[in-house]
Design a protein around this nucleic acid. Structure first.
Lengths: 224, 224, 224, 224
DNA sequence: AATGAATGAGGTTTCATTCAT
DNA sequence: CATGAATGAAACCTCATTCAT
């Protein structure tokens, strides 16, 4: 949606902010993870460069805000799952939900990965605000997990989520489609790198969770 | 400008190449992961900019070469361990060795992480050469692991190494010391992020490996 | 017209563009034909380097634009002459007009000569646009000439203009004032090179045109 | 011919100098008129960069020397013609001979054109020496022409040669094959530039000479 | 004489950010 | 609020020339 007029109402401002985030996301996908220039983002959002700076202090802040949005959605999905199945939530379900978020928003892993790179270009307070929001959700979702999996100790839920997130980030890096990748994989000698992010992540997540929960078989449900 | 001897012999050239890599590494650490400019690398190595370009085609190639060196050392360490203990190698030992590499060279995780970012600025062939070298070592070390852990299927060793690497990369990202980090962690609300890379990684690796090996307790040795 | 700090109106932008071209021209003369760097052009125009790049995609495009401007003026002068005298236009008048353009803008022959050197650094489409504009004027002026000189066949006018242009370019090269030239001409042994561009060109042009028109005396008017 | 050993004898040095010039010429053709770097010239001549600097003070001096060689050959050809046919030499023969030089050495017009560009990078004395040699030949060949064409006054021969040279240089610039040219000529609007250097030059030279000799028809021989 | 490693000035271009309008 | 012109700091890379070996 394009607002031609000035955004006076607070509500209009949010719409405009959204437009910028949408534009940034679209470009992120087109550029395969590369951060588009502010100029391009502005143009895509049908705004002038200066306008973008009215809504974000820094180029990086745009992308951090986009990342925040995705991250919150991510937790929403997770919580929705555990809310629905409660104590009967299975590992596989969790893994699937986890993956689902990335499939729905392919820009998410790109950003998740990039965001750490430009942390230092973001205002300290902005960064803290972002991290705090995440921390709060981590606690919340972690606690729920602890309710579901008795193997998890106090704080173990959040920690497991962080580890899983780390695994996801890392695996993304290793399987991310890049300009060179396709062509590279044609080389026989590089067969070992021919991996599918989704499939691999699912397996790995389940393995990690099982490993964390402890070796007792049967104690961890791996239902479809 | 300090004029050192000229590197006429092939051997001297390697030394000079080394000096450049050392300089790059030192700056990488100082800059906390940021790639220093060629100019700076050159100055640090007490060379002129042009000289650096005699040894590396691009700025990025310098850092890729540095990463390659570290990666090979990494595999060397891994293989040395399994060679020494053979079938009696325990998970904890592996995790410790794994960690040891990062402790010895704090620039390793930085680079491992960054290298994917500038892949596209590196000559395709150079990149393939690098990846092939890694693939070869992955196969080799993976196969050794398969000999040690009967739970691993053919190819499972290399894959487990990759997953572990992914976990390492991701965890690094989440715990990497950055300009903001120290100050941020003072915030009570961010307690959940107060994590130690080494300790966390050790636990996580063991969990992942145990999870991958399968749930049967006792089958996987976790010796000190 | 003095532009305010920012050229907002399309008209102001043209003025600014002009300022850049003026600066480039001034430097061209000072440097005796050498292309000044964008940095210098910018400084001379009292602008920042980046600003220049807002108006021209490449350094070379600046000079091509300057050349285009001069070339169009050149054709204007030619056409004005033939329009004024029509069938009574004499060879000498044409030669004088021809020369006049170079005298008025000493940078013209420099550029005319240099422009071919950096053709390859100019965007293909930009180059085609420039050449097309010239071609169109060549056709137009050539056709007029054909109306005046019955000795010229269809297309002969444009061709004669091209030949004359070639002669001009070449003669410029041979007589162009250069850092060394003045001093060089003091040498007795180089007397043969002591030539005056204007005088020589006038004679040569008339000779060429007479030669092209055919040998019939009296058929070609050489009026003062 | 490659000399592996050091060139001690004066003769050997000339051979080596030759090798450099040959290399420069070959590269000039391959690069379509662009001056190859010293490194490339050296490699092509199977020498080291430093060695080239033993024979030429400057990169530009190499190309000037090459140009001098071609120019002298050019005069040789001209003189051979007039020596052979004497007073019976026709304009067309001269034009053909003139053209022949360029056909035999396609690098000649490239250089002739470029040499003026880098004059200022050549040592003054070297430049004077070159120009003097040319001046001397101009006088000589010019005088011969004056003997053949009675229309030419004292000094008119040399001057006519210079004018013809100018015409040649200019026409070359306008028809020189360049990276863009081929593709450009496909444009209908640029038809007027579709010209053949050889054909055009022949016509133009004859026209110029006839024009210079004066309008009396029949007085100038244009024999096949 | 010959080599080729080392130098470093020099030039182009990009783009985040500011600020006049 | 909105704009987009202006800024100028980076950063990369090339290559003619020098000079230690």
């Amino acid at each position: 949606m394009v607002i031609k007029q000035r955004a006076i109402l607070e509500e209009d401002k949010l719409v405009r902010r959204d437009a910028i985030l949408e534009a940034a996301q679209a470009l992120l996908l087109e550029r395969q993870g590369e951060l588009a220039s502010v100029d391009e983002v502005a143009k895509r959002a049908r705004l002038a460069k200066g306008t973008v700076y009215l809504y974000f202090k820094t180029k990086e802040e745009i992308y951090l805000a986009l990342h925040e949005r995705r991250s919150l959605e991510f937790f929403d999905n997770l919580d929705a799952l555990t809310a629905r199945f409660g104590g009967k939530t299975g590992l596989r379900q969790i893994a699937r939900t986890w993956l689902g978020c990335f499939e729905r928003h392919p820009s998410y892993p790109m950003l998740a990965s990039r965001c750490f790179e430009f942390e230092h270009k973001v205002d300290f307070d902005t960064l803290v605000a972002f991290r705090s929001a995440i921390a709060q959700r981590l606690d919340q979702s972690g606690t729920r997990l602890e309710g579901i999996f008795p193997e998890l100790k106090r704080g173990g839920g959040a920690k497991l989520l962080i580890l899983s997130y780390a695994l996801t980030l890392g695996l993304w890096r290793l399987t991310e489609p890049t300009p060179h990748r396709e062509r590279m994989l044609k080389q026989r000698s590089l067969d070992v790198f021919r991996m599918d992010f989704d499939a691999e992540l699912e397996t790995a997540l389940i393995a990690l969770w099982r490993g964390v929960m402890g070796g007792r078989p049967g104690s961890v449900k791996v239902k479809p």
